[in-house]
Structure formats: C-alpha cells, structure tokens
Amino acid sequence: MGFLFVLLACIFWGTENNCTRVLSKNNPLQIVLLKGIFSGSGSLIIALCIGEKIPQTLWVILSVLLLGFVAYGLSIFFYTYAQRTLGAARTSAYYAITPFIGTGLSFLIFKNAPTYFYFIALIFMIIGAFLSSSDEKLF
C-alpha cells in the first residue's frame, strides 16, 4: 500500500511543479505566500486530525514559524525565482542536488563518514545536473 502513496506523492509533486512553472512569471513572493498559507493550513489540519497538540510555549511556536520561513518559504521563493530565470528543467536539476549538500553538511556536523554509495550517487547527480543544464547538445 505504501508504494501507492509514494506514486501519488510523485504525481502531485509533478503537478504542483508544473503549476508553479506557469505561475513563476508572477511575483515569487505572492506565490510563496499562497503556497505557504495553503500548505501550512493543510499540515496543521492533518496534525490536529491525527492528535498532535499545539505547543503552549511561545518560543516553540516562534522557532517552528522561523524554521518554516527558512526551510519552506525561502526555499520556494528562490525556486520560483530560479524557474523564472533558468527555466523549469534547469531549476529542477540544480534543486535535485540539494539533498546531497544537506547530507554532506550532516556528515560534517554529526561526524559520520559517508559510504561509497553516497559518492557514487553524488557523481551521478552532478553529471545529470550538468547534462540537463548545459546549453550544448552532447548527443
């Protein structure tokens, strides 16, 4: 059953990216505000439906809002802006490398050594990003 949810998530993510590409001609800040309001509200509704409690301390609420602003708001703002200037394919190719940057930082922070699979995958992602962002046709 889990693979169906993964498949649905990929379909919805692709649909959402195409909608964002169409909207990227507009002001990125307006797009981020709308996406943030609707995705934040949806996440809050789901959390309340599954029994999560709203924190009672102000510092926890503010830190969650700050994390959302940086991790979601700024990320989507720069992604939308990049789609406007670079195009959807190039932006997606560059965006696909970001998990490797995050895991690389986590290796430094938590002092864990990456496996060789990490480096193999990183090489393929860099090659893929280069090929999809290059103006020249190689084949």
Results as ranks from 00 to 15, higher is better:
T91C: 08
F107K: 03
R90S: 12
T20Y: 08
L66I: 13
S133T: 10
R84P: 02
G128M: 00
L29T: 08
F78W: 12
F119C: 02
A89T: 13
F12V: 04
K111A: 15
F124T: 08
F100W: 07
K35S: 07
I54F: 12
A47E: 06
A89Q: 06
S106M: 14
Y72S: 10
G14C: 11
I50W: 03
Q30L: 06
K137D: 10
E52T: 01
R84I: 00
F5K: 06
T115I: 06
T98H: 10
L33C: 05
N112K: 15
T115C: 07
S106I: 04
I76S: 04
L7W: 10
G104E: 13
I76F: 04
F107T: 05
Y95T: 14
R90M: 06
L4Y: 13
T103C: 08
Q30P: 00
T80R: 03
L7P: 09
C19R: 03
M125W: 00
F3T: 06
F3A: 11
S106W: 12
R84C: 01
E16T: 13
L62W: 10
L58P: 03
P55F: 12
G40L: 05
Y72C: 06
T20L: 14
F5A: 05
I97G: 07
Q83I: 09
I76A: 04
Y95V: 06
T98I: 15
S39Q: 06
L138A: 00
I101P: 10
V6W: 14
G102D: 00
L8P: 06
I127K: 04
L138T: 00
S75H: 13
W59F: 14
P28C: 09
P28M: 07
G36F: 01
T115D: 14
Y72L: 13
G128S: 06
T115E: 12
I31P: 03
V60D: 05
F110Y: 15
M125G: 04
G68S: 14
S39L: 10
G73Q: 11
L62G: 08
N27I: 04
A9Q: 09
A96M: 11
L138F: 04
A9G: 11
V22S: 03
T80K: 05
A47Y: 08
A47R: 02
A71D: 11
I46H: 07
S92T: 11
L48V: 00
A129I: 02
I45P: 02
A89L: 09
L74R: 00
V70L: 14
S75V: 09
E136K: 00
F5I: 01
G104Y: 14
S39C: 07
F77N: 11
T20W: 03
L131C: 00
I46W: 10
K25S: 08
S43N: 05
N27P: 11
F130M: 05
G87I: 09
I50E: 02
L7A: 15
M1H: 08
F139A: 00
L8Q: 08
